[in-house]
């Protein structure tokens, strides 16, 4: 085995960029360009994410499998509409998966009164409108969450991290259902606003939403 400091001279290849790099969001562009193996790579890269999101909303694994397939089919159709200036690939794909999963869960729960979310085909992601841009880098998301009031952070964690439903959060925290809904909704608005500010000038809000 070799583990010599002499090797260090060559290792800069792993950590330095010797020229301007391509965008970090290359797979969807390749998918949109019709590069066949980009699609296979996409499945390998993001299949776990899509599968995990499906399982959060649909407890039945067989239905979750169908959801994953539908999401990737959506993705192929939507890839041309993806704009890396608006969102990261991960967020974009997560949004499609989430949208599909929520729609499916609504149908399962027999809630036909709810309008489905817009079709992927209607995504306005080609827009260059800066107000739409929330690229959602992970570090920014964490930063945004830290700016929420403590109670909202707890509810966010229970909902988004542990996958709890509203009634489950009520049972866990003892908070009224209305409070849980309000904290989640206002928290989401605040997170979006902070992400916008972070995208814009790098400075988050200094006044957390109550």
């Amino acid at each position: 085995m070799v583990d010599s400091p002499k090797h260090q001279a060559s290792l800069h290849l792993f950590v330095e960029r010797s020229a301007p790099t391509a965008t970090e969001n290359g797979i969807l562009k390749q998918v949109a360009s019709g590069v066949e193996r980009a699609m296979e790579t996409c499945i390998s890269q993001y299949g776990g994410l899509v599968w995990s999101i499906a399982l959060r909303y649909v407890r039945d694994r067989s239905s979750a499998e169908d959801l994953v397939q539908e999401t990737f089919t959506d993705l192929w159709k939507s890839s041309k509409r993806y704009n890396p200036a608006i969102a990261t690939e991960c967020t974009f794909i997560g949004m499609l998966a989430r949208r599909r999963a929520i729609d499916f869960a609504r149908k399962q729960n027999r809630q036909p009164t709810l309008e489905p979310l817009p079709d992927a085909e209607s995504l306005p992601l080609e827009s260059s409108d800066p107000s739409a841009a929330v690229r959602c880098e992970s570090s920014d998301v964490r930063e945004a969450l830290r700016h929420l009031p403590e109670e909202s952070q707890t509810i966010f964690s229970l909902h988004f991290d542990q996958g709890m439903t509203h009634p489950e959060i009520v049972k866990k925290t003892g908070l009224p259902l209305g409070t849980v809904k309000t904290r989640l909704r206002r928290g989401l608005i605040e997170v979006r606003n902070i992400l916008r500010r972070l995208e814009g000038d790098g400075e988050p809000s200094t006044s957390p939403t109550s």
């Binding site: 959060r56 967020t91 949004m95 979310l117 959602c136 964490r142 979006r192």
Partner: peptide, 28 residues
Amino acid sequence: DLSMELAAAAVETDFLQEKEEALPDFLQ
């Protein structure tokens, strides 16, 4: 715009990073 939906997706995917389940081989 999609900003709020993207924010929700970003929060969810960010939390999922730590507990993501691998895509089953047969499904892949």
